[in-house]
């Protein structure tokens, strides 16, 4: 415990770093994923902006990236990181990888959620003379808002999880802290306090997500 207290400033910094990594990844990855998900949904043959070539390309791209284990994905991204953000280590490198990883995961969740929207309401909007792009944003997304929020909550939890894993490759944040100041020094108090902190963050995020989704679904 004493050792943990003596490292308290570093612990606080680690929490800050985790929020930085998770925050940017969820927001940027979330937006990028929303865009990819909308493209997947809308260009699917027979849908609003049916476009087979675009659908096939994006679909295959997502299928290639999704199954890669995150730590390996980070390593594989190193040349890209060097070329774009100029580093392959640290919080920014992890954030870069997480943003892309989250985007591909979000794209599938968005696609699956939107597919469940009743085709009848889309037909009603078409019959009212609405344009496909307008239907996408004024009908399809609002109708799916509850499940979309739950999807983002799921991604938030996954990103917190992955950001901790990234600690193993020196990414900074709570995972890094638990390894460096905890397990490597056989200080299990530090490990458990860090784990408890991660659990609290995840619980808070899940609670907020459930709350917002319930409001969107009016249940």
């Amino acid at each position: 415990m004493d050792e943990f207290l003596s490292n308290l400033p570093i612990f606080r910094e680690a929490i800050g770093t985790t929020f930085y990594i998770v925050g940017i990844s969820v927001v940027l990855g979330g937006l990028l994923g929303l865009l990819l998900g909308l493209v997947l949904y809308a260009t699917r043959p027979g849908n609003l902006l049916s476009n087979r070539p675009v659908f096939i390309v994006v679909n295959i791209l997502v299928n290639i990236v999704r199954p890669i284990p995150f730590v390996i994905f980070l390593l594989a991204l190193q040349p890209v990181m060097l070329a774009t953000i100029g580093t392959t280590i640290g919080a920014d490198a992890v954030t870069f990888g997480l943003t892309l990883g989250a985007a591909f995961a979000v794209s599938r969740i968005i696609e699956q959620t939107l597919i469940a929207v009743d085709p009848g309401v889309i037909e009603a909007a078409r019959a009212a003379g609405a344009r496909p792009l307008s239907i996408l944003f004024t009908v399809v997304l609002p109708e799916a808002l509850g499940p979309v929020i739950l999807g983002y909550t799921f991604i938030f939890v996954a990103v917190v999880d992955m950001s901790a894993q990234a600690g193993l490759v020196g990414g900074g944040g709570l995972g890094d802290f638990a390894v460096t100041y905890g397990s490597q020094r056989y200080n299990w108090t530090v490990v458990y306090i860090t784990v408890a902190t991660i659990i609290v963050i995840v619980q808070a995020g899940q609670f907020l997500g459930n709350f917002l989704a319930r409001r969107a679904l009016r249940r």
Binding site: D118, G120, V121, E123, A124, A125, A127, V139, P142, E143, L145
Partner: peptide, 11 residues
């Protein structure tokens, strides 16, 4: 146009 399942926007 009106529909069998009404197709109202729930949102």
């Amino acid at each position: 146009m009106i529909f069998q399942q009404f197709n109202l926007f729930r949102s």
